[in-house]
Design a protein around this nucleic acid. Structure first.
Lengths: 113, 113
DNA sequence: CTACAATATACGCGTTACGGAATATAACTG
DNA sequence: CAGTTATATTCCGTAACGCGTATATTGTAG
C-alpha cells in the first residue's frame, strides 16, 4: 500500500478537495471558491494530489480542470480486504497469544535460542 | 471521515505496525524486533496509533500487548462507498462539464449574479 | 503585440513530525 | 529491598508541511 495516498488524504483541505471532485471535474478557481481557499494553496494541494495520483488535470482553454483518478482509492479498497477478512473471523486472538506465552514460559528453563 | 486515520497510516513504520498486527496482538518488544525499530520509536508510533484509535493496549504482567481496533478501518471502508458508487457509473463527466461551460458562455453577455 | 484571466511557482515563516539518545516509570524476580 | 526487564516519556536537531504574499507562466482577446 502506497503511503502517499494516506499522506494526501491526511490533510483536511485535500480531503475536502477529493470529496468535492466526487461530484465531477472542476477547474482550480471553482475548487478554491467552493472550499474557501486562496488560489495558491489550492494549486499546491492539487499538485500534491496529482503527485499522489489521486487527481489528473486536463487543460481546457485558459483553465485546468482536475478530476479524480480512481486507481489509488481502488488500491486502498483492496488493501482493506485483508482487514475485512479478519473482522469476520475471531479478530481478538488475545487469549490465543496468552496461551502461547504461558506455554513458552513453561518449557523455557533453558534459554534455547 | 477522520483525517487522524489517514495521518496514522501515512507513516510507513506505522503502516507496517498495523499490517503486522493483522496476524494478532503483540507486545511492544516483538513489534520493535520484527520491524527492526528501536524501542522508543515503536512506543511513540504505538502512542500515535492509539490516539488515532487504530490500536488498543492491554497490560499483561510486565508487557503491554497491542491489538488492532477495527472501527477506524471500518469507517474508512464505508467512506470508500461513495467512490465505489461512482466508479461503476460514468466517472469521467468531463464532457458534461464542458457542455455546461459552453452553454454558459453563450448566454453570458450580462454578468447576472 | 498589449492587456488580462487563470494557474503555478518561489520565498519566508511558524509549526509540526520523525529519529536518536538519555532518562523515567512500572512490574517482575529473588 | 536491589536488580532487571519492558515500556513510556523527554529533549534535541533536522526536515517537511501549510500558509500568505509576491511573482512567474500560460492562454485568450483585442
Amino acid at each position: 500500500m502506497n503511503t502517499m495516498t494516506f499522506s494526501a488524504l491526511a490533510e483536511p483541505n485535500r480531503l475536502d478537495i477529493v470529496e468535492l471532485l466526487l461530484n465531477g471535474p472542476l477547474p482550480v478557481g471553482e475548487i478554491a471558491q467552493r472550499l474557501d481557499l486562496n488560489q495558491p494553496q489550492t494549486s499546491k494541494h492539487l499538485r500534491f494530489l496529482s503527485d499522489a495520483g489521486l487527481v489528473e488535470v486536463q487543460p481546457v482553454a485558459n483553465k485546468r480542470i482536475y478530476k479524480l483518478r480512481p486507481e489509488p482509492l481502488q488500491e486502498l479498497d483492496s488493501w482493506l480486504d485483508s482487514f475485512r477478512r479478519i473482522w469476520e473471523e475471531r479478530f481478538d486472538n488475545l487469549d490465543v497469544y496468552l496461551r502461547q506465552l504461558q506455554q513458552k514460559s513453561n518449557n523455557d528453563g533453558s534459554g534455547s535460542k
